[in-house]
Simulated scan of single mutants.
Amino acid sequence: MDATNALGEFLRARRALVRPEDAGIRRGGGLRRVPGLRREEVAMLAGISADYYLRLEQGRDRNPSLQVLEALADVLNLDAPATAHLIGLTRARPSRTRRSGRAGDSGRASRRPEPVPPGILQLIDGWPGNPAYVENRFTDVLAANALATALSPNHSPGVNLLRAILLDETERELRRDWEELTEAGIAALRANAGPDVDDPRLVELVGELSVRSERFRRLWGRHDVRPKLARVMRLRHPKVGDLELQSNKLAINGTDGLILKVFHAEPGSRDAELLGILGSLAVSREDRHDDRSASASDKHQAVDEQ
């Protein structure tokens, strides 16, 4: 990822996805050397000079007018989120103090995470029947309740969820809509990052996934930009079988892009029944863990008294 010329990188990727015939350009008899539109074709359709468009792609002009950007968005068939992303790449942004670190093979980030507001922690713990977790804009999980962890162990603090979904085979087996989910997740990562393409955490994550996941490398190179919306999560859980849960995300005000993800099943449905069974299993497991901890504590106390 070339953080020094994010605008040019975006323009090159998006023009490669536009078929000439869709832009009203008739193909000639010869072979085209580039996929999608040529630079001069983009410039002609946008009503700007070829030399000026070349300067934009090469990063030699980083302050195009809003009129030029909107014309380019029209030529490149960008929707509203992608157009906003294009405009954001050309606008100055405030500097931010960041901490960076390396993520180990477990997928757990070594950087200090932003604290989750105590009220949010109390809220998700008070939802025993609804899986819920908090993630940052780079999909690092910061907090989760017991039912969310019962759905997937990767819904656990310290795990990067996008990394897990792409690289963990058990996660791929869990997600019945893995193809759709990974495509949406990668487009949402770019939308969440916005123009802040040089954030150390983003650079770290993109670098690792580009090396370890061919699917990530290919989809990231498309520069798709789509905020993650409410969706149905389709799972094949090893304990309760197939279930479908509605997924909703809520922005947490007063934080640097923290998101609360909540899942629920339609009341009275089989999915709700299965979710209840999974919740009972999670409670039983916690009770057994507490009993073992108490037993171990009693043994230590007995030894101390001797």
Rank of each mutant, 00 (worst) to 15 (best):
D2I: 11
T4P: 00
N5H: 10
N5E: 10
L11A: 08
R12H: 13
A13Y: 09
E21T: 09
E21M: 04
D22W: 10
D22A: 14
R26I: 09
G30P: 04
L31T: 12
R33G: 11
V34K: 06
L37A: 01
R39C: 03
V42I: 01
M44S: 13
M44L: 14
A50I: 01
L54Q: 13
R55G: 05
R55F: 03
L56C: 00
G59N: 08
R60S: 03
D61L: 01
R62P: 05
R62G: 08
P64W: 00
Q67C: 01
V68N: 02
A71T: 04
D74Q: 12
N77E: 13
A82M: 01
T83L: 01
A84I: 00
I87R: 04
G88R: 05
R93T: 04
T97E: 14
G104N: 06
G104V: 06
S106W: 02
G107V: 03
A109N: 05
S110A: 11
P113W: 07
P115Q: 04
L121K: 10
L123D: 02
I124K: 12
D125E: 15
G126F: 09
W127N: 02
N130H: 15
P131T: 06
V134H: 12
N136W: 08
R137A: 11
R137Q: 10
F138Q: 06
D140M: 00
L147V: 06
T149G: 09
A150S: 08
P153N: 06
S156N: 13
S156V: 01
S156C: 13
G158R: 05
N160R: 04
L161F: 12
L162W: 06
L166Y: 05
T170Q: 15
L174A: 12
R175Q: 14
E179S: 14
G185K: 10
R190Q: 14
N192L: 07
A193T: 15
D199V: 06
P200C: 09
P200A: 06
R201C: 00
L205W: 07
L205C: 11
V206T: 14
L209G: 09
S210E: 08
S213H: 08
E214H: 04
R215Q: 15
R215N: 13
D224N: 05
D224C: 02
P227G: 06
K228T: 05
K228L: 15
L229S: 13
A230S: 11
R236K: 13
P238Y: 10
V240L: 08
V240C: 09
L245F: 01
Q246W: 02
S247R: 14
L250W: 03
A251C: 04
G254M: 06
D256L: 04
G257R: 09
I259Y: 01
K261E: 12
F263G: 07
F263S: 09
H264L: 07
D271I: 05
D271P: 03
G276C: 11
L281D: 09
L281N: 05
L281K: 08
R288L: 13
A296T: 07
S297V: 10
S297Q: 14
D298P: 00
K299M: 11
H300M: 14
D304F: 07
D304P: 03
D304E: 14
E305G: 01
Q306K: 03
